Amino acid sequence: MNKFQLFLFLSFLITFSAKGQEDKSNSPFSESRYNYFLKTVLLFNEYLDTDNGSFNTTQLRFLHPIGNGAWNFRFDLPLISANSNSVNKTGIGDVGAGVSYIPYLEKSNGIAFRLRINSNSAVDPSFGTGKWVAIPAVIYGRYFMQKQFLWLSSLEYQGSFAGSRNRSDVNTTAYENVLLYFFGKNWLAGDVAFRYNNTLDGFQNNAFLEFGRKITPNNLVYIHPSVAFGGEKSYNYGLEVGVLILF
């Protein structure tokens, strides 16, 4: 059994052995920035500077709760522009979809599981991996200091299971921690993500800061600069700007 199969097996066992609670209000997974219980439309634009040029991704993400809200469906549609000495074009990237499940939830902490599939659908080889990729993850959320701070920690594996034989396999493990601080209608967040690319045998880490604000009770905006580090980093620095609509 490889690491990917083992991770899925353990996730299956933990998911069906955990006991969830129905109290979803004011829980770690109900915060507006990462809300699992409301329909959400997220539109963001991310610019990445690389050694060989730049990539710009405009992405539409839709999230929809299922049933009693313990399940959540997600759909991602990326539009990518590449600008380098060899490529200057725009097109659809790898379209993805996924489901999340929350087996355990209290007002101060909770656990969620997520499985995403990215399809081999990019219109140009430079816009995608050339592979079908399964991405299982486990996420832990916890409030601190009378809910002024929210900590979200996740462990994720990205593994390809089909696609072009001429493209490298996707085999990456990521451990990420986000700390959010809420004040008034605003929030500040910091994140450090450690990613080990087993195919390249090197780290592709990154860190970001984020400032966001509620402009109405159901509409939010944020700005999100980031920097990459590690021996096999995939970009140098980036800037993401997004709008969320909750309904």
Rank of each mutant, 00 (worst) to 15 (best):
L105P: 00
G230N: 03
R167A: 15
V243N: 08
S126I: 09
T216S: 13
N177S: 12
S25G: 09
W187D: 08
G69Y: 07
F203N: 11
G110A: 09
R116F: 13
G141I: 00
F113P: 08
K19L: 00
N120Q: 14
N218Q: 14
Y34T: 13
K39R: 15
V221S: 00
P225H: 01
F127K: 01
R167N: 15
E240M: 10
Y34L: 14
Q59Y: 06
Y36D: 03
Q21M: 12
K214T: 06
E176D: 13
S30N: 14
H64N: 11
K131W: 02
A193D: 12
F4V: 03
R74L: 12
V227I: 15
K214V: 01
W187G: 02
R61H: 03
I245H: 10
D201Q: 13
S17V: 05
L43T: 12
L155M: 10
K89I: 04
E156P: 04
N171V: 05
F9D: 07
N88L: 06
I139D: 05
W132K: 09
R195S: 08
N171Y: 05
N206G: 03
N83S: 15
R74F: 07
G159V: 07
V227E: 12
Y140N: 03
E156W: 07
K3W: 12
V192A: 12
A174I: 06
F127H: 05
Q146L: 09
E22L: 14
W71R: 07
Y140R: 02
S226Y: 03
S32H: 11
N219V: 15
L8W: 04
A207T: 11
N52C: 06
F208N: 11
F229H: 10
A82P: 00
P136W: 02
L155H: 03
Q21K: 14
H64Q: 14
N206T: 07
L38H: 08
I117A: 05
L60K: 04
Y235P: 11
T15L: 13
F55L: 13
F247T: 09
E232W: 01
E22V: 13
S119Y: 03
Q158T: 00
S25P: 00
Q204C: 03
G20I: 06
V170H: 01
L179P: 01
S84L: 10
F62Q: 10
L10K: 09
Y181D: 01
I66P: 06
Y157I: 09
Y101C: 06
R61D: 10
A228Q: 12
F194V: 14
A97H: 13
N219Y: 03
E240W: 00
D124M: 02
P217H: 01
G98P: 11
I245V: 13
W151L: 15
G128L: 10
F7C: 00
G238L: 04
F29W: 10
F211S: 08
L246A: 07
F29M: 07
L42A: 07
G128Q: 09
F62D: 02
L79I: 15
N35Y: 10
K233H: 09
P136Y: 04
F182S: 13
V99W: 05
S160M: 05
A137K: 00
